[in-house]
Design a protein around this nucleic acid. Sequence first.
DNA 1: TTGGCATAGTTTAATATAGAACTATTTAAC
DNA 2: GTTAAATAGTTCTATATTAAACTATGCCAA
Lengths: 157, 157
Amino acid sequence: MPSHYKGDLNRLRSLNAFINLMRASESVISRLQKRLSAEGLTASQFGALETLFHLGPLCQTELGKKLLKTDGNVTMVVDHLEKRGLARRVRAGEDRRYVSVQLTSKGRALIQKIFPRHAAAIQEEMSALSASEQETLRRLCRKLGRKNEITKKEIKK
Amino acid sequence: MPSHYKGDLNRLRSLNAFINLMRASESVISRLQKRLSAEGLTASQFGALETLFHLGPLCQTELGKKLLKTDGNVTMVVDHLEKRGLARRVRAGEDRRYVSVQLTSKGRALIQKIFPRHAAAIQEEMSALSASEQETLRRLCRKLGRKNEITKKEIKK
DNA sequence: TTGGCATAGTTTAATATAGAACTATTTAAC
DNA sequence: GTTAAATAGTTCTATATTAAACTATGCCAA
């Protein structure tokens, strides 16, 4: 048995876990996106509406942090929501750099209508796994996410 | 205890598992993409090079199936690879609709250089999980992926 | 108090992506 | 055998996405 045998096995296991993680998330995302697009929303637009609905008005930088998107990207998504009358920008506070992004009543009505259906679709997607499997998946994914956050901070130094 | 209590718990568990799956895959992808971009490649370009390297020349439709991307998208990615001299289109066979996409020697050299580093980065990402956790993650993700494939076929009917 | 740094947001350029309309080619049905 | 349906690829439109350059505003320290 060559000396790198164990190392190769480790690499192979990592790659296989990674590939299946990617395939699973891509296929779930792709199906959910099709549903949203049938409702007339992109994934980003839905994400922004949902975040504003559940957390209340946010400035764009905060919204970007929640959505894991860059500042320039948030500008564009909010532009589109504003054009469609689903959200509005309000320059309010002391600090005139900040823009508060708020749902309009039209935006609130839309997300209230769509969110339950979206949640049901997610539940349907996840029903491939048992309750305990879902909890295990959550735990393992949290570990992956946490590790990356730590590494991110280290890189910033 | 209200009668929908159990149903709410099920929905909550599904949503939590889903959210953590998305966060984990997004954060791993985002970090790997930064590495690739430092090598001068986008994720799609890397994916195409890697697929052509490991499977040999493919027509664009086949390549799109492997990458889970649409036909129009493949046209653009291959355009970019061709412009950079990493791949070439060859109209070869009987059926003149098909285009065989092949790596150039420059493209082959690049992917041979980059792939091991990319695999090492993936291994590093996955090292947040133990060997058996990685195998569990793989198994659960395969289940999710398979369910979706079946559903896709059913929808096509 | 002012000059430099930090922060919020916009703009721009390059690429990605889906989807729909379109062209060219092949196959099949009649 | 000719027309209709299917297939491979391209083009077009709209949105997404990052990164970098840029503007406006606020803060802080010498």
